[in-house]
Computed example of a mutant assay.
Amino acid sequence: MEAKGIVPRALPASGRRAPTCAPGTGIAALDDHSLLAELELLHGTDARLFEDEELLGMVMPAIRSDYEALEGYRYQPGPALTCPVVALTGDNDRRLSLDQARAWSDVADTAFDLRVFGGGHFFLGEHTAEVADVVRGVLGC
């Protein structure tokens, strides 16, 4: 976007490793049963979803596509971002280390901030108001 003259007010990156980190873990290639087991480990999906075959049939393609997109992305080095970057993560995220979150600073030319909340990958559910405050602050709202 910045290369096209569109400079975002800020980039909040939540629960996601920096683009400079190694790509994903091959979750997209797992069979449905293993992919569901992986989702259960993250403790962010209502367990009733795993029991409803019809609903699973509707959402599994979208879930798999999300993992394919994440794991297929390859970082192309370029100019650092001129907008502030804030990385948000849970202190017990099984899929994102603090170093991977902190690595967002490698692509930030100006301000970088790392905010760590209690919880796992879905820390947002337990800290909605706090996260909203951080995002409002970084966006200047």
Rank of each mutant, 00 (worst) to 15 (best):
V116L: 11
R136G: 07
G78N: 08
P19C: 00
T82R: 15
A47C: 00
S34N: 12
A108R: 03
D31M: 03
A132F: 14
A62F: 02
L55S: 04
V135M: 06
A69K: 15
I27L: 13
G120A: 10
E40R: 13
C141K: 02
R64Y: 03
P77W: 13
L36E: 09
G118P: 01
I63K: 01
V116G: 00
V116P: 00
I63R: 04
L88V: 08
I63Y: 02
K4T: 01
A22N: 01
R102E: 08
G140Y: 07
P23S: 06
D66Y: 05
Y73I: 02
V86T: 13
V59K: 09
E54D: 14
P79K: 01
E2G: 07
T89W: 10
G119H: 03
P23T: 05
H43L: 04
L56A: 08
P12K: 04
Y67E: 08
G78C: 00
F50H: 09
V86M: 00
L11F: 14
E68M: 11
V85S: 01
S97R: 09
G24W: 09
A80F: 06
L30D: 07
G24M: 01
G78S: 11
S97I: 04
A103W: 12
G24L: 04
A22V: 10
D109A: 15
K4I: 00
S34A: 10
D106Q: 14
T110N: 15
A132Y: 11
V116T: 15
G57C: 05
V131E: 06
R74Q: 06
L70K: 05
A18P: 03
F123E: 09
